[in-house]
Design a protein around this nucleic acid. Structure first.
Length: 953
DNA sequence: GAGCACTGC
């Protein structure tokens, strides 16, 4: 096709007409033009619309007309730039960090001195540790972490450089006699240059040792501003930014880039790199246009700072109902507020109440089921009120209390309010208590319901608000003595639901196919796929990758991102990165995306209709995690994830009939699926005598309550009358399972509290300490066995923690040892908290390490004697209490050398009934520590002696 | 020789 015809076709395509003189004119101007932009400018002068289509046209035209030399030279220039950039980057990477002289050096030296002063000897350190205030302690930990990273980087740097040097030498030796292509030679030279730069940089480093730490995404307590920025950004409600028009434009843009790349493929041989460059060019160009427009928008926002906050507040759906709502609160002591997400209830109601003066009589408490929610909402409200977070508006969560005497609006996790009940059972410092997200029915919310209901009857000056997102509030209303219901409409987009025609045999396969279908046939918008667990997510990821690999660039780019709770945080953060132009994000998620985190830009949801749910069997004391169908409420919640920014679609991988007939209306509340040991202890300490008569909204199974009471009795936390003993009262202070707090109390007698607390903290974070990636499973196992201690898993955990502490809490040590940094860090936080509580209940913490491991094991016997199992002649373990057959979990260090008597930390049902975390015990100890529970004949060992060795293997 | 949904104190 000749140029003129081509232009003429384009003209017709864009303007709907084609005149010969225009064609000529265009050809002329574009020959002179030096860039596509210049052509574009001329074209718009000539009444072309200034849009994507014209831009593409201009670019195509420029590519067609410019003499190849020009393009190549411009390519070379930009290539040169790219090379330089790469050199810089790689050199940086090699040396790890940028130099920021002087200040960093000084800071670093100061830090060194300060820490040296604080940490003289190990013993001194412990002593100091206890003397320090919370803030100092945190600061020290933080500083030590930074130092340890510096230390690591220092050591790493020469190693890296050395490695690179040897690599270069190898290359030179191996390829000495071979003929190299031009590119290979260039590559080699480039590498040499990078090496030189790195060396040079390293030299500078010796002069000025300094590093800049990367900004952490989360859990960075040293840098609260960064942290709150993330929180704040996350909380600000998503506005319907992408209009239909914009979506359409975006789609057109994608096509344009796409077509462009595809068309030039014919020339690929000659201009392999040229092509790449051109495509980038288009993308960059687009970005520029985009960023310009968004830039001016944000400028405008900055100009109007101040008033817009109030304006924004008035724009929320709840604003219209402000006066009616306040009147309703005035007239009723208990009010149920129904409002969907986006109505603004969480942030606005406490502010309204403050505005009309409720805070004169006491604080306003607002509970959230999750820590992040409490923090981010508090950050938002303090911003709206223009006060500093922690002053008038604050939050209180475990490990972190950001409130002061000034605080009048306090956001806190529901568990925290429950703890406050223990200090002040009448909550006298509060004038309003708002239980938010009540529909989630967490364990703590359910208990608060019972306590608050009672309290509302007793305290006439207390206002209680129960806020929920469900429309089914009749039950709630009748529970709270027929409290009135106030409904606030929500603001979200329509989501269309699609069901399968017939039940799917393999939902994973179906999910993958649906994803691909959406990807090729639906307009832009990210996809969120709900699956049940990590394993499935990894499988789906694999399947999607293999199936798209063959298609190459025939379909648009698909970015597959997994998300689940145990995924390392840097990988988790990736899902919040914006989707690049022309690509589609596919997020494979567990339930975590249902409530805990929201991802913007999701237009399509695929819902497999299942989730993993834990349940507790009080008879055997066994927990199990089983894949179960979700409830209708959950299905709606999942679908709602598609309608946050624009109208969306939800593809349900089950039939409409199943939805209507097979799914439960609501999920089973947590209180009916869990061990209630700790809860019963709390309620007892609040003076509730008859738990069976406690006013639960959905009472737990009586067996569960009875088992919990029995356990507490056997632990001597309750007396014969079922009253709390002195021991029990002290145990209730600890936010851990009563069996565990009993161990701590016992350890007090043996003088090994320090060790026992460490173990309890490690046990509390669950079995997520050891990281075991599939591809390096064997390696990880070997390292884990390196930590093994003969006593069993508890002592192994103690060993892990101590070694971690030796490494100054280094995260690099964790990486090398296949330990999950996040988990062990959390264990350390828990440990700190438990140590603090020990002081409060006057439990002495030993300063010197306890040398007798048996004392540590005996402490655990006194708490966990119910969980005794004996190896029988059959080679199987049976629990002593009800002769239930159980197995040692293969992850245990005792797996290869089964002892006769063990106590286990927990029983889990997966493929078999496994005991997780076991220690070897002497049956004599059990008799000694729990004489009321065991009889001598229970613990006789006769059958075993006749056994030939290794029979059980 | 195996498997860890998600929270929270």
């Amino acid at each position: 096709m000749d140029l003129q015809t081509w232009i003429s076709d384009k003209l017709y395509d864009i303007l709907g007409m084609s005149e010969k003189h225009t064609v000529f004119y265009i050809e002329e101007i574009s020959k002179k033009a030096k860039s596509p932009e210049e052509i574009l400018e001329k074209l718009t002068d000539y009444e072309f619309p200034n849009d994507q289509k014209t831009l593409c046209f201009a670019e195509d035209l420029f590519a067609k007309l410019s003499p190849k030399e020009t393009i190549i030279s411009s390519y070379q220039a930009s290539h040169q730039e790219a090379i330089e950039k790469r050199q810089r980057n790689e050199a940086y990477e090699l040396v790890e960090n940028e130099i920021d002289p002087e200040t960093d050096k000084r800071e670093r030296d100061e830090l060194h001195d300060r820490i040296k002063k604080r940490v003289r000897s190990k013993k001194d350190k412990k002593q100091k540790h206890l003397e320090m205030t919370e803030e100092e302690r945190r600061e020290t930990v933080q500083q030590m972490k930074r130092l340890s990273r510096w230390k690591y980087l220092e050591q790493r740097e020469p190693r890296q450089i050395d490695l690179f040097k040897r690599q270069l030498e190898d290359e030179e030796r191996i390829f000495k006699d071979q003929e190299l292509t031009e590119r290979e030679i260039k590559e080699h030279e480039l590498n040499k240059k990078i090496f030189e730069i790195a060396l040079e940089k390293a030299k500078k480093h010796e002069e000025v040792m300094s590093y800049r730490l990367p900004d952490a995404y989360d859990e960075d307590k040293a840098n609260p501003q960064q942290r709150f920025k993330v929180l704040y950004d996350r909380y600000v409600e998503a506005k319907p930014e992408a209009t239909e028009q914009e979506l359409w434009e975006q789609k057109q843009t994608n096509r344009a880039i796409f077509r462009y790349g595809a068309k030039d493929r014919a020339q690929q041989k000659n201009y392999e790199l040229l092509l790449e460059n051109q495509v980038n060019f288009v993308k960059e160009n687009l970005k520029k246009i985009k960023s310009e427009s968004s830039g001016s928008e944000s400028d405008r926002q900055i100009e109007e700072e101040g008033p817009p906050i109030q304006k924004e507040r008035k724009g929320l759906p709840i604003f219209e109902y402000r006066d009616e709502l306040l009147a309703a609160i005035r007239d009723h002591n208990v009010l149920i507020v129904v409002g969907e997400t986006g109505s603004g209830k969480t942030t606005q109601i406490p502010q309204y109440l403050h505005e009309v003066g409720y805070t004169k009589y006491g604080k306003i408490a607002c509970t959230q089921p999750r820590r992040v929610a409490a923090m981010s909402v508090a950050a938002r409200v303090s911003y709206e009120l223009g006060v500093k977070l922690g002053h008038e508006v604050g939050y209180s969560i475990r490990f972190e209390d950001k409130t002061s005497e000034k605080t009048i609006i306090k956001y806190l996790t529901d568990g925290m309010l429950l703890r406050e009940f223990m200090v002040d059972p009448e909550l006298n410092s509060y004038s309003v208590v708002m239980i938010d997200e009540a529909h989630e029915r967490t364990l703590h919310t359910d208990i608060l319901f019972g306590l608050i209901k009672d309290l509302a009857r007793a305290r006439s000056n207390l206002k209680v608000l129960i806020s929920s997102a469900t429309m089914d509030v009749e039950k709630m209303s009748s529970y709270f003595d027929d409290a009135p219901v106030f409904v606030i409409p929500g603001r979200r987009f329509e989501v269309e639901n699609y069901y399968t025609k017939a039940p799917e045999a393999d939902y994973l396969e179906a999910a993958v196919i649906t994803t691909l279908q959406i990807h090729v046939s639906q307009p832009p918008g990210d996809v969120l796929v709900f699956l049940t667990g990590q394993d499935e997510i990894e499988q789906a990821q694999e399947m999607l990758l293999t199936r798209t690999r063959g298609l190459g660039t025939k379909i648009g780019e698909m970015i597959i991102l997994p998300i689940y709770a145990t995924l390392p945080s840097d990988m988790q953060a990736r899902i919040f990165e914006p989707t690049p132009e022309g690509a589609r994000k596919v997020v494979l998620a567990t339930n975590i995306a249902e409530t805990s985190l929201t991802i913007d830009g999701i237009i399509y949801v695929i819902d497999c209709g299942l989730c993993k749910q834990s349940s507790y069997n009080p008879r055997t004391g066994m927990e199990s995690l089983i894949v179960t169908p979700i409830s209708k409420a959950s299905a709606r919640q999942r679908a709602g994830r598609a309608g946050r920014v624009a109208p969306g679609k939800c593809f349900r991988l089950y039939t409409l009939w199943s939805y209507e007939h097979e799914l439960e209306e609501n999920p089973i509340p947590e209180i009916q699926r869990t061990n209630l040991g700790n809860v019963v202890l709390i309620l007892k300490s609040l003076g509730i005598e008859n738990l069976v008569k406690f006013d639960f909204m959905d009472p737990p199974a009586s067996e569960t309550l009875i088992r919990a009471l029995e356990e507490l009795y056997a632990l001597a936390a309750l007396n014969d009358e079922g009253e709390l003993t002195k021991l029990g009262r002290r145990m209730a202070e600890f936010p851990i399972d009563p069996m565990m707090s009993k161990c701590i109390m016992q350890a007090h007698k043996y003088g090994c509290v320090n060790e026992v607390i460490t173990i309890c903290s490690m046990l509390s974070v669950g079995n997520s300490i050891f990281y075991r990636p599939k591809d390096r499973a064997l390696h990880a196992d070997n390292i884990r066995m390196g930590f093994a201690r003969p006593g069993g898993d508890h002592l192994t955990l103690l060993n892990v923690y101590n070694q971690w502490e030796e490494s100054d809490g280094s995260s690099n040590w964790c990486k090398e040892m296949f330990i999950q940094y996040r988990s062990i860090q959390k264990a350390s936080d828990i440990r700190e908290q438990l140590l603090e509580l020990c002081e409060r209940v006057e439990v002495e913490v030993n300063e010197d390490p306890c040398s007798d491991c048996n004392l540590i094991i005996k402490s655990f016997c006194s708490g966990y004697f119910f969980n005794t199992a004996r190896l029988h002649a059959t080679g199987l373990y049976k629990t002593v209490k009800n002769q239930h057959s159980v197995h040692v979990h293969p992850s245990s260090v005792l797996f290869k050398d089964l002892p006769r008597w063990v106590i286990y930390h927990e029983l889990v049902l997966t493929t078999k009934e496994f005991m997780r975390q076991i220690i070897e015990v002497n049956p004599q100890w059990l008799l000694e520590l729990a004489p009321h529970y065991f009889k001598a004949e229970d613990l006789e060992d006769d059958s075993f002696k006749k056994l030939p060795k290794n029979r059980h293997k």
